[in-house]
Computed example of a mutant assay.
Amino acid sequence: MNPTRKRRLVVISLILVAVVVAAALTVLALQQNITYLYTPVEVQAGKVPADARFRLGGMVKAGSIQRAGDSLKTGFVVTDGDAELDVEYTGILPDLFREKQSVVTTGRMDGKRFVATEVLAKHDENYVPRDVAEAMAKAHKKHEVSESKPAAQ
């Protein structure tokens, strides 16, 4: 093999190695930043990896909002009709946040409580991803059915 071909082979090999390393680093960075959406049932079933950052979707349970008088800390319960999960958030809540409203919160589990770093209230179906919209619609239907059942006397 002559020196010119050898040099070309080395340069091409180095370029290929650089491309593979860049692709591997990109995939690794993307995997660390992905946040999956789970419902309270899935969280309680143990489908969420320990200490993982994820999104919790569902509805704010009626009568569950508790605001601290001296800080921006707010506690509420997110339900999907089958299970409930306590959520704690410190910060300013969106204007559309209220009871019986669909929410998506981002954060981590702290024991049996979800500590949210971000709270998103449902705005309009046009702006909601399809999987989130389906999960919220299912939660709304379950919630409406459970409240419309008459109480046993």
Rank of each mutant, 00 (worst) to 15 (best):
R113Y: 06
Q153Y: 14
V41F: 07
R8L: 09
S146H: 13
L93E: 08
V103T: 00
K47L: 15
V104W: 09
D80W: 00
E88W: 01
P129E: 13
S148W: 08
L9Y: 07
S146Q: 15
M1H: 11
M59W: 06
Q101I: 05
D70M: 02
R7T: 07
L16W: 08
A121I: 05
L72I: 03
K73H: 09
T26I: 10
T39V: 05
Q32Y: 10
I15A: 15
G69V: 03
K122D: 08
G58T: 06
P49R: 04
V27N: 06
F97H: 09
R98D: 15
A151E: 14
V77K: 01
S13H: 02
G63C: 00
G91F: 08
S71H: 08
L30I: 09
V119Y: 11
S64N: 01
M136W: 14
G107K: 04
L85D: 11
L25A: 15
E88D: 09
E42K: 14
P49T: 08
S148F: 12
K149S: 03
H143M: 12
V41A: 06
G91L: 05
V77F: 06
V43G: 07
V145H: 10
G111S: 01
V21W: 02
V128C: 12
E118S: 09
F54V: 13
V17G: 02
T26L: 13
D110V: 05
T26N: 10
T117R: 03
H123L: 11
A151S: 12
P150L: 12
E134Y: 09
K6I: 13
S148K: 12
G91Y: 02
T74C: 04
T74F: 00
P129V: 12
Q44R: 15
V21N: 01
G81L: 02
Q44N: 11
V128H: 04
P49N: 04
S146W: 10
A22I: 11
K112D: 15
A121G: 10
A139M: 10
M1W: 05
K112M: 13
V119F: 00
T106G: 09
E144K: 01
D131K: 05
E118C: 00
V128T: 14
V115T: 12
A116R: 07
G111F: 01
V132F: 11
D110C: 08
V11I: 15
D86S: 08
R98M: 07
V11H: 06
L28G: 06
R108M: 14
D86A: 07
V27A: 11
I12C: 05
V78L: 00
Q66N: 05
P150K: 12
R7F: 08
T39R: 13
